[in-house]
Design a protein around this nucleic acid. Sequence first.
DNA 1: CAGGGTTTTTACAAAGTCGTGACAGGAACC
DNA 2: GGTTCCTGTCACGACTTTGTAAAAACCCTG
Lengths: 225, 225
Amino acid sequence: MDKILVIEDDRAVQRALKRLFESEGYSVESSFDGPTALEAFRTSPPAVVVLDLRLPGMAGKDLCREIKQSSPDMPVVVLSAAADVADKVLLLELGADDYVTKPFSPRELLARVNVAIRHNRRTSVPEMFCFDDVVVDFTRMEVTAAGRSVACTPQEFKILRFFAANAERVVSREELLNEVWGYQAYPTTRTVDNHIMRLRQKVEKNPASPVHFRTVHGVGYRFVK
Amino acid sequence: MDKILVIEDDRAVQRALKRLFESEGYSVESSFDGPTALEAFRTSPPAVVVLDLRLPGMAGKDLCREIKQSSPDMPVVVLSAAADVADKVLLLELGADDYVTKPFSPRELLARVNVAIRHNRRTSVPEMFCFDDVVVDFTRMEVTAAGRSVACTPQEFKILRFFAANAERVVSREELLNEVWGYQAYPTTRTVDNHIMRLRQKVEKNPASPVHFRTVHGVGYRFVK
DNA sequence: CAGGGTTTTTACAAAGTCGTGACAGGAACC
DNA sequence: GGTTCCTGTCACGACTTTGTAAAAACCCTG
């Protein structure tokens, strides 16, 4: 899943944050000072940065500015003592997206990080997708085939969404695993087959000889409208 | 896209706000004092006004009143120091729609501006909401199901209002927490389930197999009329 | 500061979803 | 035609998510 870059000099807090985020399925990269953080930031950009403003030498603020300057779309959530953000100008000027004052509740921090990540991800995805006599409504999470409603699981919706964006093209099982399941989880390729099978049985007129979810022997699958 | 009129005398804050809003796709018009603001406001009305109450010469409050008097439907979001809004009566008097106090998170300001715009766009915020044999009256805070009156709590009304505005769409528990519970409080997702359950028992004909408050396994809930 | 109502937390059972291995049937290749 | 690899399918167990009830915390109001 997504990676969080945590920049925090206090080892105890660092550990606690790592545990917190990992328990939610994020991967965590930790930095204890500015230079290391920038290095880590550049070599493998995270989905979000969690930054303690009180790094030694007042580096926190500069770091935030620097990050925001080099990649303005990177969401930054700031940890700070109440006194540090007394001035409303500060956070705005730093370009931080959100902040949590210490002492903070783990759940609140999590919620804000989640919001920051999801917000950034808003891409223009069409909410409707049709082929043959099948209608997929992503906002309602509803699928109808030949007029009849078909129950689909979240995973199946992800697959449908992926194929909607990659119709006609041949995609390998590995690519599907990467894009639909994510880089973190690596189930076997058999898993992919199973899900394809279920989709076929749900939306193909004749699941035995599929028209839309075609199999490309030795390579993967190809979705055609 | 929508235009935001920012009225703020501090140049640094002004710049930061401009960057913030423009990064979200809004266009920004800046004013540094009352007269200029009114001029700009009249020649090309924005979708929302963001107003710093602490303009020089106590002009902020007058400005707010003036704007609200000439166009009552124009949403106004006020920036202020905590001390200025010690009594919320003042804000009501001014007619401001929402306010953000001093050390505010950029994202929170954004969220409130978004809400202000969206809220205004639903021209007739329906004071009545009906589905099936259920009638929800938001002004009188009364709910009747199948003719019989049903007692609902404030929280339940908030949830009903949210679903009224977001019918048919699948919403995650997290979205519900953000929109209904607000930006600050972060209860667990189990809390959401409990409230949904109570609503089901109050208005669903058969709470065991709900028709209106449907659960979307692995995602959240979906309200359908 | 006591009481009642509301909201949140906790705990556990129930339901749904997903991943996996086994195996059979095909496809490709020689 | 035979061998080998690849794919479709099934059933099962592990795991996650949800429904529900009960208790605890909270918050007004008087």
